[in-house]
């Protein structure tokens, strides 16, 4: 018996089959995704080892003030005589862990509430969805500002404010995915076999929705950094003398002629946000069952 020339999957032209999403590193290797991942990993390493590699104490005011880059410092000094390079490195250690914490928390809260809403439906669904509507009705940044201002300026309060505005998108996404899967034959089959609601959710639904949630989360890390920096920029986050990118850019406005004060923390924000976006895009492509067939060379007519 010879092997069939082609498996069915490759020759089902009219139907796009839903495939088990798999991460295949081979296809994951879009140049942008790799670059993004490299930059993101680099920044995370910097965030961890910042205290070791800083050439100067980021808080010490012991250098000549407002010195342009090159005179003994890599990125110049600020109006209080602190080393900008050291402060940018130290800022990574402040912002990145908080952004990751923020995203993890919003995924947890959003996914749990969304799954409950989608699975149990009725008034539970109604209640949770109205709350998300309420939050999402306001522009994200403005609402976060209001909450942060009400809580008082501190980095942790900024994270809390950002959390309040960012979980609803996960709740929405999860609810939609759960709703769609609830009707699927294998979930119904499980219920017919006497699965309890929790078992249904855990066994049949959860493993099949992590992919899209992961993608949204990775795309959201950049947004989270931007939001936290933005709040600090507005004076609602990190308090001086903490080296935080947003507040550094904000300080730079007072010394507009010293371009290096704003440029370097700004670049830091830019690179990491773009990097995480690339990672998220690549992840989405890699997990998308449709692009899977496309790139696998299958028929998509």
């Amino acid at each position: 018996m010879t092997r069939p020339l082609l498996t069915k999957d490759e020759l089902e032209p009219t139907r796009l089959r839903w495939r088990r999403p798999r991460l295949r590193l081979g296809r994951w290797s879009s140049p942008l995704g790799i670059t993004g991942a490299a930059v993101a990993v680099l920044w995370i390493i910097v965030a961890i080892i910042a205290p070791v590699i800083e050439p100067h104490d980021p808080l010490a005011q012991n250098l000549a003030i407002l010195q342009a880059p090159g005179h003994g410092t890599l990125m110049g000094t600020d109006e209080l005589g602190r080393d900008v390079f050291s402060r940018v490195l130290s800022g990574a250690g402040v912002t990145i862990p908080l952004a990751l914490l923020l995203v993890v928390m919003s995924v947890l809260i959003g996914a749990v509430l969304g799954a409950i809403a989608g699975f149990f439906g009725r008034w539970v669904d109604e209640l949770i969805m109205r709350i998300t509507d309420l939050v999402m009705a306001f522009p994200t940044v403005i609402l976060a500002m209001v909450i942060a201002a009400a809580l008082g300026a501190s980095l942790l309060n900024a994270v809390l404010a950002a959390l309040i505005v960012s979980w609803p998108s996960y709740a929405r996404l999860t609810r939609g995915l759960v709703l769609a899967l609830r009707q699927s034959n294998y979930v119904v089959s499980g219920q017919l076999l006497g699965f309890s609601p929790l078992k249904s959710l855990w066994r049949d639904i959860a493993p099949n929705i992590v992919g899209p949630i992961l993608v949204l989360a990775s795309l959201d890390i950049g947004t989270a950094i931007l939001l936290l920096s933005g709040l600090s920029f507005l004076g609602l986050g990190a308090k001086p003398p903490t080296a935080e990118w947003g507040s550094m850019v904000s300080d730079a406005i007072q010394n507009f002629d010293s371009w290096w004060l704003g440029l370097f923390p700004g670049l830091a924000i830019l690179t990491i946000v773009v990097a995480f976006n690339f990672v998220g895009d690549a992840l989405r492509d890699a997990l998308d069952p449709k692009s899977n067939t496309l790139r696998g060379g299958g028929l998509t007519l």
């Binding site: 089959r17 699927s184 034959n185 294998y186 066994r203 493993p207 099949n208």
Partner: peptide
């Protein structure tokens, strides 16, 4: 048959 089984188990 494609949607009758949990793809992840």
């Amino acid at each position: 048959p494609n949607s009758s089984l949990n793809p992840r188990r």
